[in-house]
């Protein structure tokens, strides 16, 4: 009896979680794959279409435009957040007067939701009345309507995403820095190293596994960017910020082409998985 109870015990503990996981995670994933094989409208499946939703994406210029916009976003965002969070982590690692306030400045956005962050940046970049234009005017320069200029608007969105996420990356990197023994820096200094040499020759190589995680996480974030775009530009101006998730949102919830939207979701997942796999495969080895 007590043995039976011991055998059942783990199932009792893990069962409820596993059940909810099955219903709200595993099943929707399976169902997304299933739906992507159908012409699926608002009232359900119309016809089985095989891989047509995928093949039609390949020939769809809107899909490629979104793909390149998202890639362009990643190309701006990933290097920016990696470098800035590394520099911040190195500077925040050792004691300094006022360090508590500095940490607060970079960590506070972690608790601000994307809608509020987007509003705050909209307000900063608002033409004429926003703080950025006021600063420009103060120096006698004309105001810039950056959110209305294709190219610049994507850059402003990458700034919001950076503002929100840098604290999280700094926390990860700080944990990594704690594992680098101080003796290494002391020895290097006896040999007359500069701060830059310390960073390039000691910190970066030893932080490599953590930096890899920062890069992979930020690529994952870049390909999932959504809230900032929806609130700040709705994909505009002229479709220049219609990232892949925006395209999915439009197909799914504005055109109700649910099968096609599901296929876009699968494609986004495959892109993210492939990029993460490549990173880990090619960069982890050399550590």
């Amino acid at each position: 009896m007590s043995r039976l109870r011991s055998t059942l015990f783990p199932y009792l503990l893990a069962g409820p979680y596993i059940a909810l996981f099955a219903v709200f995670v595993a099943y929707p994933v399976g169902r997304a794959l299933y739906m992507s094989l159908f012409d699926w409208g608002i009232f359900g499946p119309n016809a089985f279409v095989g891989l047509d939703n995928y093949t039609s994406l390949v020939g769809d210029s809107r899909f490629w435009s979104s793909f390149w916009i998202t890639s362009g976003f990643a190309a701006m965002y990933v290097p920016m957040i990696t470098v800035i969070s590394l520099v911040l982590a190195v500077m925040l690692h050792r004691k300094l007067p006022g360090i508590g306030i500095f940490r607060t400045a970079f960590f506070l956005p972690i608790v601000i939701n994307v809608a509020v962050a987007a509003i705050a940046f909209n307000w900063l970049f608002e033409p004429n009345i926003g703080t950025i234009d006021k600063v420009l005017n103060f120096f006698g320069l004309p105001g810039q309507n950056l959110l209305q200029i294709p190219g610049w608007s994507l850059f402003v969105i990458s700034l919001v995403t950076l503002w929100i996420n840098v604290g999280f990356m700094v926390i990860i990197l700080l944990a990594g820095l704690e594992n680098i023994p101080d003796e290494l820096y002391e020895a290097a200094r006896l040999d007359g190293s500069t701060a830059l040499q310390d960073l390039v020759l000691i910190t970066v190589p030893l932080l490599r596994p953590i930096l890899l995680i920062v890069v992979v996480l930020s690529i994952v974030q870049a390909f999932q960017i959504f809230g900032e775009v929806l609130i700040m530009t709705q994909g505009g101006p002229f479709g220049s910020t219609t990232v892949l998730t925006m395209l999915l949102y439009e197909e799914g919830f504005e055109r109700f082409a649910l099968g096609r939207a599901a296929a876009i979701g699968v494609v986004i997942t495959i892109i993210i998985a492939t990029l993460s796999f490549i990173q880990f495969r090619f960069f982890r080895r050399e550590v």
């Binding site: 783990p10 893990a14 596993i18 996981f21 709200f24 995670v25 595993a26 099943y27 929707p28 994933v29 169902r31 997304a32 299933y34 739906m35 994952v220 390909f223 999932q224 959504f226 998730t245 999915l248 799914g252 649910l258 939207a261 599901a262 979701g265 699968v266 986004i268 997942t269 993210i272 998985a273 993460s276």
Partner: peptide
Amino acid sequence: RNVLFALVLLSMMMPGILEVISLYDL
């Protein structure tokens, strides 16, 4: 146990956007 835990961890890497359509339908 190990298979289930691996699945749970794997789902951490999965983008939320993959599920929104089918979850909404559900």
